[in-house]
Design a protein around this nucleic acid. Structure first.
Lengths: 198, 198
DNA sequence: AAATGGTTTAACCAATTGGTCAATTCTTTC
DNA sequence: GAAAGAATTGACCAATTGGTTAAACCATTT
């Protein structure tokens, strides 16, 4: 593992846990086992380093989902597929969504500058339109479904402290809860969007 | 409006926009039109002031929802009712959810210390249990439904920059989207949880 | 082994941070 | 209107912040 990589790893940890304002170059240096000046030598300013991390974090989340949303699968299976993919990613990196979301909220210009995704996947949009006109699903636009999907998936992670406290679950129990939740989200999403066959 | 209130207002604004680490006492003082030393005179340390704001913000969100969840309404109407109440609150204060969520994540001890809600509303829990055994809704626990409800409601607010950018909506269009969403969330939630009458 | 060029460090800097304090202003009480 | 107490301020402080720089270290080439 090269020094640059160790720094990126340390920066990732510190930024993700504390956000941009809460993180200090000193903390990142210590976490990476490296002198503070070396951060600037390799990565310029704090903002530069931060943007590198944010970019990487962001691209870890959405692009895969978008690719799945753009596949040729029928809508119903596709949704199920995306939920599994999305939740799988988040379970492996539970702090990712809140980090990306809060930092994008406080730095919205980042989106316009850096993010190349400028619309929902066209195949997904078309499927939603078709399914609506055919009356297979309730009247909804892609943004709604995208919001449903993301909201159902990320909430147990971003609001974990509250939810775990209220439900009185141990860490192990909460983990189990998260496992079961994949199926639950699929059920709610598909069941809530699709009309029943009569 | 008394000086103390003006300070609380200013602190609310600055903390909500920048989080604890991102906010400075100087900024709060300026926003409140007051000398920095006065903040300490009235509210002690930065942490003290922050906790006052966080407490107030938190109690603005959940307690009302919990009271509604504990009413004697039938489950189906209750959910609809809570969604409308919750979304109504958030629309009036769109930055509240992300603020509470991120700060609770980075300061989880606050929950144990300050928040008195230690379980889901008992009447709601009982209703879910009953409805499950009667086969009216899919197998789900209160934590799941709570997560569904919160996730569906807050996502368009916490992830607004991304979602608005992807959907290509103007501010006005996005506001309209949020209005329509009340009905959509009700539909998805009720439709996703309840089995259909056959 | 000397020269070279990239890597890493300790020491340092100006600016900003949260916080204090004595002095001043304002308000209330007598 | 004087005394008293609360409210408000400007000046100040030590600690920390992001960032710089010159010197040291290290590996490679000649």
């Amino acid at each position: 593992m090269t020094t640059k990589e160790r720094i990126l790893q340390g920066a990732h940890d510190v930024f993700q846990r504390n956000g941009f304002s809460g993180a200090t170059m000193q903390a990142i240096a210590e976490k990476s086992g490296v002198n503070k000046a070396l951060l600037h030598y390799h990565f310029g300013t704090k903002s530069d380093l931060f943007h590198a991390i944010l970019q990487q974090s962001f691209s870890q989340l959405l692009p895969a989902v978008f690719m799945a949303l753009n596949s040729e699968m029928p809508l119903r299976n596709k949704l199920q597929n995306v939920v599994e993919l999305y939740l799988g990613t988040i379970i492996k990196n539970p702090e990712l969504p809140l980090f990306v979301i809060s930092e994008l909220q406080r730095n919205p210009s980042f989106i316009r500058k850096q993010i190349k995704l400028r619309a929902f996947p066209p195949r997904f949009v078309q499927q939603v339109k078709d399914a609506t006109t055919r009356g297979e699903i309730i009247r909804a636009e892609p943004a709604d479904i995208m919001a449903d999907l993301m909201g159902l998936c990320i909430l147990p992670f971003v609001a974990r402290p509250i939810l775990q406290h209220l439900s009185g679950k141990s860490n192990a129990q909460y983990k189990e809860f998260l496992q079961h939740r994949v199926q639950h989200v699929c059920d709610v999403l598909v069941g809530g969007l699709f009309h029943v066959q009569r």
